[in-house]
């Protein structure tokens, strides 16, 4: 039985990681479909909390999503199977690409293709930023907007180390939590 669960975890994450374009959020949705809706191994409410853990943790959401499901179903052996399944496909694909990259790069057509795509990638990234930034503004919390502006200025104009900015923002979040707690008690 345990072996069946482990192989199921491994094969599911392997399959999803090989064929899912569009990032971690899509994979998390598909994991839910597989383990909640099809197999009924995890209940709906608990899956929501597991997804929250995956999204609040550092690292790739797809890998984190695989880990929470693996841990829930089979503890540490489950985590190992889930991580292997999630990591093997990109590892194999990018190793192959890296192997051919130097030769590819010299090719006139590929070079033109990659050059043209740069403008498209820039548009895709800034479009994502527009949506995410819009969500932040919608919260109507001045602290969040100040944090967003300050981080931009620090990163763009002063080239402040990314890790410092993350620490500073986390610290602001902790202060906010403490202040709210103190107010509630008063």
């Amino acid at each position: 039985m345990n072996k069946k669960i482990l192989s199921n975890i491994f094969l599911s994450t392997l399959y999803l990681s090989s064929f899912t374009f569009g990032g971690g959020y899509v994979i998390v949705t598909l994991l839910k479909k597989k383990f909640v809706d099809e197999l009924h191994w995890i209940d709906q409410q608990e899956m929501l909390d597991l997804v929250a853990i995956a999204q609040s943790s550092p690292g790739a959401i797809a890998v984190n999503g695989a880990i929470v499901v693996g841990y829930k179903l089979a503890r540490l052996p489950g985590v190992i199977c889930a991580v292997l399944g999630a990591v093997i496909p990109p590892f194999v694909i990018l190793t192959a690409i890296s192997f051919f990259y130097t030769a590819f790069k010299e090719n006139f057509i590929i070079q033109a293709m990659l050059n043209g795509m740069t403008a498209g990638v820039g548009a895709v990234i800034l479009s994502v930023v527009y949506d995410m930034g819009g969500d932040v503004v919608k919260e109507k919390d001045p602290l969040l907007i100040i944090l967003m502006a300050a981080s931009f200025i620090a990163a763009y104009f002063y080239h402040v180390n990314v890790i410092f900015i993350i620490f500073a923002a986390a610290l602001a979040g902790i202060c906010k939590t403490i202040i709210r707690k103190l107010r509630n008690e008063a």
Binding site: A52, Q55, S56, G122, I125, L126, V128, V129, M132, G133, D135, V136, L143, L144, I145, L147, M148, A149, S151, F152, A155, Y156, V162, I165, I166, A168, A169, A170, A172, G173, I174, K176, T177
Partner: peptide, 20 residues
């Protein structure tokens, strides 16, 4: 989740800088 909420604006800005 409180901490994460205040990380999000900083992350948005840093992605913007990388995109630029």
């Amino acid at each position: 989740q409180d901490i994460l909420e205040s990380l999000r604006p900083a992350v948005v800005s840093m992605i913007a800088v990388a995109g630029i």
